[in-house]
Design a protein around this nucleic acid. Structure first.
Ligand SMILES: [Mn+2]
Ligand SMILES: [Mn+2]
Length: 585
DNA sequence: ACCCTACACTCAGAT
DNA sequence: AAATAGCGCG
DNA sequence: ATCTGAGTGTAGCGCGCTATT
């Protein structure tokens, strides 16, 4: 085991005017050391090439890497700590890391030039198209796009341009390095600065040298391929083209297979919006019943391995298309062995609708909502605060906590299990939580650790354990603890009033499906420390204003509270009529 | 986990 | 021409 | 009237600059 250095120990001091270069070089060294076998020759050569550049050139390269897009006007590359931009640029162009005067399509030209510049550069075209001189940028682009489809260089688009334009040629490789380092593409170079500024604090977790996100180059390639398709989807490209390019899911990597399914669902939803019902169904089928393409369908009574959301969307789309019998034939086996509470809940709504449409006997009537209901009429305002203030009493204080209290207590009690240094869970200094938090086997891999943490609920040790973590880990990023939403008095009231058995039940439920059950908890909690013995010393209150309704995850938590005999109510609010603010007239 | 997540709010359509 | 969205930045 | 699904909006570090409408 080598300890991962604390984030604060690896981030460059902001007193260094080229702090960002120090951070970038830290990543280069880290990747070469730990992921060297995943780099091809060209990538190794690129790293060596960068290291051999003059420092000003390296710094300018990193400035470009950290900025948005690949194209830059040289006038916009003006950095005091770098000095002469042209001098710093020359070695980058020489080495092929930056392309001088690249071909630009019209869209890029419009991004790079300001409107007055475009009017000068394209004066002839604007006149030829008969466009008014004051045409707005978007309208100008739309009007000229058909006539100017051919890419040209800036020196051709606008020979009188006062500066040059360059293109960073290594952005894709830098993204790949970033992906190897972070194990995702949502984190970027700013993680270093935010940590250095003290805006983010991370737990230090020991890791093995071989602990990393990717074991094989093909996995990186697969991640990047899915990511590029997702980007094109977000950019508005029609689904048809993307669907055709969808790669086969990676058979031996459950994480990447799940990312593949999520992309299928996203494509399916867009296909629905585009009116491509058949394509949407095919995508949902692919994500929802992934192994049904092979010749090994699972036996009856076993839920499919695919995405619940994909299956439900498939059924709903079939319903909308009038394919009720086909939908029911798929739905009934699922209802007999749902993969999760979410799926069961969705099918409880779907199957009766389908059966009714087909003239079949409705299934047994669903039980009525079994949570307590209150109704209040209050003066208008933010609805949760209105109810909190209405119910609040010195002897029965109310806190507006939503998910923060129960997930926070869980995160504090189970800190050691969550941040346990398992292989593949932590591999850089900027983890909010373990990388495998939402994977199928997250809990199974840590069962004993979680059991040990929860065992403290059985003899009251949990209180001191939670307080200790609250003190010692204060402010460290955690997927469960929102530090700002808790305070000492809330914590002490919760520890005094929440029975350990109730906490244990909630935490077990969280562990059954951390992703689905981490949300949906009621808005308010009221503590009654002085309640007579035998009466509950807390109650949970979900507030609903006019026009709001319970979400699925809220209903599932309420059903759970009811089944466990835990006090939870839904409080429906109506607004008091406000005396009309009269206008003088 | 800033194309994600969580929650409330809004609208439309079915019953 | 004031308001605003997006970006760059530490 | 009630239920349901789908879509939208807000918020995510905070500040200053700038391009655009
Ligand atoms: Mn709420
Ligand atoms: Mn609510």
């Amino acid at each position: 085991m080598t300890p991962v250095p604390a984030a604060s120990a690896v981030t460059a001091s902001l007193n260094d005017p080229r702090y960002y270069l120090a951070n970038f070089r830290f990543v280069l060294a880290w990747v070469v050391e730990r992921h060297g076998d995943l780099l091809n020759d060209a990538e190794h050569a690129l790293v060596a090439c960068i290291e051999a550049l003059p420092e000003a050139a390296q710094a300018l390269l990193v400035r470009m890497v950290m900025r948005k897009g690949e194209h830059f006007r040289t006038a916009r590359l003006d950095y005091p700590e770098i000095g002469d931009t042209e001098a710093a640029l020359a070695p980058l162009v020489e080495a092929g890391l930056v392309e001088a005067d690249p071909l630009l399509d019209l869209e890029t030209l419009f991004q790079q030039l300001r409107l007055p510049e475009l009017r000068r550069a394209l004066a002839a075209e604007i006149a030829a198209a008969g466009l008014p001189a004051a045409t707005a940028k978007a309208a100008l682009h739309e009007a000229l796009a058909p006539r100017l489809a051919e890419p040209r260089r800036l020196t051709d688009w606008w020979p009188e341009a006062p500066d040059r334009l360059v293109r960073l040629a290594v952005m894709a490789t830098c993204d790949r390095l970033r992906l190897m380092f972070f194990g995702n593409l949502r984190q970027d170079w700013s993680a270093f600065v935010l940590a250095e500024l003290g805006l983010r604090h991370y737990e230090r977790v020991a890791i093995t040298p071989d602990s990393r996100a990717f074991g094989r180059r093909e996995e990186l390639d697969a991640y990047l391929a899915l990511h590029r398709l997702r980007e094109r989807l977000a950019a508005g490209e029609p689904v048809e083209a993307l669907h055709a390019e969808l790669p086969a899911p990676m058979a031996d990597n459950a994480w990447l297979a799940s990312r593949h399914r999520r992309l299928c669902v996203a494509l399916g939803r867009q296909a629905e919006r585009e009116g491509q019902g058949e394509a949407a169904l095919a995508l949902y089928r692919r994500a929802g019943w992934p192994e049904s393409a092979s010749a090994t369908p699972r036996g009856p009574g076993t839920p499919p391995a695919g995405s619940v959301e994909a299956r439900i969307r498939h059924l709903r789309l079939q319903e909308r298309r009038g394919e009720h019998a086909e939908a029911l034939a798929l739905a009934e086996p699922l209802a007999a062995a749902p993969a999760s509470e979410e799926e069961a809940q969705a099918l409880e709504r779907l199957v009766p609708r389908l059966r009714r449409r087909l003239g079949l006997a409705p299934p047994a009537a669903r039980p009525e909502p079994d949570h307590a209901r209150w109704s209040l009429t209050l003066p208008p305002g933010p609805v949760e605060a209105a109810v909190r203030d209405h119910l609040h009493d010195a002897a029965a204080p109310v806190h507006y906590v939503e998910n923060a209290l129960l997930t926070g207590l869980f995160g504090l009690l189970c800190w050691e299990a969550i941040f346990a240094p398992l292989p593949g869970a932590f591999f850089h200094p900027f983890h909010q939580g373990p990388a495998d938090l939402y994977r199928e086997d997250f809990v199974a891999r840590r069962r004993d650790r979680f059991d040990a943490c929860l065992a403290r609920l059985d003899d009251g040790r949990h209180r001191e354990a939670i307080r200790a973590t609250w003190r010692e880990k204060q402010g460290l990023a955690s997927p469960f603890v929102q530090w700002g939403a808790l305070d000492d008095s809330l914590l002490e009231r919760a520890l005094a009033c929440l029975p350990a058995a109730d906490l244990r039940a909630c935490f077990e439920r969280l562990l059954e499906d951390p992703k689905a059950n981490r949300a949906g908890l009621p808005d308010l909690i009221q503590f009654r420390p002085g309640a007579p013995a035998g009466e509950p010393r807390y109650r949970l209150i979900e507030v609903k204003g006019p026009g709001d309704r319970l979400q699925d995850n809220q209903r599932r938590w309420l059903a759970f509270f009811h089944a466990r005999g835990m006090p939870a109510v839904v409080c429906h609010v109506a607004w008091q009529a406000v005396p009309e603010a009269r206008e003088d007239g």
